Amino acid sequence: MTDEFLRWLLGVITSTGLIGGVAFLMRDTVANFLSKTVEHRFEKKLETFKAGIRDNEKELDQIRSFLVSARRERDAAIQAKRLEAAEILLRARHGLSELSMLVEYMKILNTEQILKAKDPKIIEFVDMLMKPFDVDEKIKKLGAIDKTIPRLYLSENSLKAFDAYQSIIFHAAMMLKLLSIPLRDKGDLIKTGILSKTVIDLVPASKEGFDKWGEEYAYYWSTYFHDQILQALRHEVSGADDMTRDAESVQRLALDSRRAQINIRSSLEQIGLPENLIKPDEAAAASSSVADKAQA
């Protein structure tokens, strides 16, 4: 039994030695095999990882392209809305300008003297001045213009200039309407300070004129805001900064002023009212001069 055990032990030792010898002799081969196996698996995983990165990059490129396209479409849509808003505001501006002659009348008329006078012919006189303009119908049409889009897509500069211009036109129309109503103590219905504040907030340099000439000084800013609307819209839509005063507006203002003078004097003469219902020329000229300096 001892012999069998020794033979078994010798066989084990021989096998182990043989295997160890073979392993020793083939160590480089095994090492290379294992190294290549590991390297192959690593490269395979690396390729898979790179492929994943490429797929992710493609997805990112697609996302970037989508965002750029969406932004471009959004900008185009906003610009289209901005153009639509500008057209609406210009249409409203044109409607207001059809009543600009009322502002010229208010520059000339001596409101204080008219309110003091008790002559019933004054109502006829004011009605004669207002009749050609169909004020109620024009204001109704202006009110029907939906300004939601302009207020959503236009800047404050454009909107504030428009609001100021509209306030001046409406104030002149309201004052003439008031003068044409047969009421006593109509002067008590006139509220001051609101219109002047609107103008002063936008043009602080105008305060000096309001301090000197009162609320009616706002009428001399009508053409200024009329032009400011167009300038602000040009800048907003096309980026143009044209700050020069429109020569056509200046010419139109001079013609309107002259026509207003002729109409008022003709109406006074026709109805038989005194010319003290008109402001002295020097007062009107002084107000206009102060306004021109502030607007320069």
Rank of each mutant, 00 (worst) to 15 (best):
K138I: 10
L142S: 03
G143K: 05
G143W: 00
G143D: 04
A144P: 08
K147C: 11
I149Y: 05
I149G: 08
P150A: 04
P150C: 01
Y153P: 03
L154W: 00
S155R: 13
S155W: 10
N157Q: 07
N157V: 07
N157F: 04
S158T: 12
L159S: 08
A161T: 10
F162M: 05
F162H: 06
Y165Q: 08
I169H: 01
I169T: 00
H171N: 08
A173W: 02
A173E: 00
L176V: 07
L176T: 04
K177G: 09
L178P: 05
L179Q: 06
L179A: 09
I181W: 08
L183V: 15
G187I: 07
D188V: 12
L189N: 15
I190G: 11
K191Q: 14
T192Y: 13
T192V: 14
L195P: 00
S196C: 10
K197E: 05
T198P: 06
D201R: 14
A205L: 13
S206Q: 08
K207Y: 06
E208K: 15
G209F: 04
G209C: 00
G209P: 00
K212S: 13
W213S: 07
W213K: 05
G214R: 09
G214E: 10
E215F: 09
E215D: 09
E216D: 14
Y217I: 00
A218R: 03
A218L: 01
Y219R: 05
Y219V: 04
Y220V: 07
W221Q: 04
S222E: 05
T223P: 02
Y224W: 07
Y224E: 04
Y224P: 02
D227W: 02
Q228P: 01
I229K: 02
L230A: 14
Q231C: 09
Q231K: 15
L233E: 01
L233N: 03
L233C: 06
R234Y: 14
E236C: 04
V237K: 03
V237A: 03
S238C: 12
D241M: 14
M243P: 04
R245D: 01
D246K: 05
A247E: 14
A247D: 10
S249H: 14
V250G: 14
Q251F: 11
Q251R: 15
L253I: 11
L253C: 09
R259T: 11
A260F: 02
Q261I: 05
Q261L: 12
Q261P: 00
Q261S: 10
I262C: 06
I262N: 04
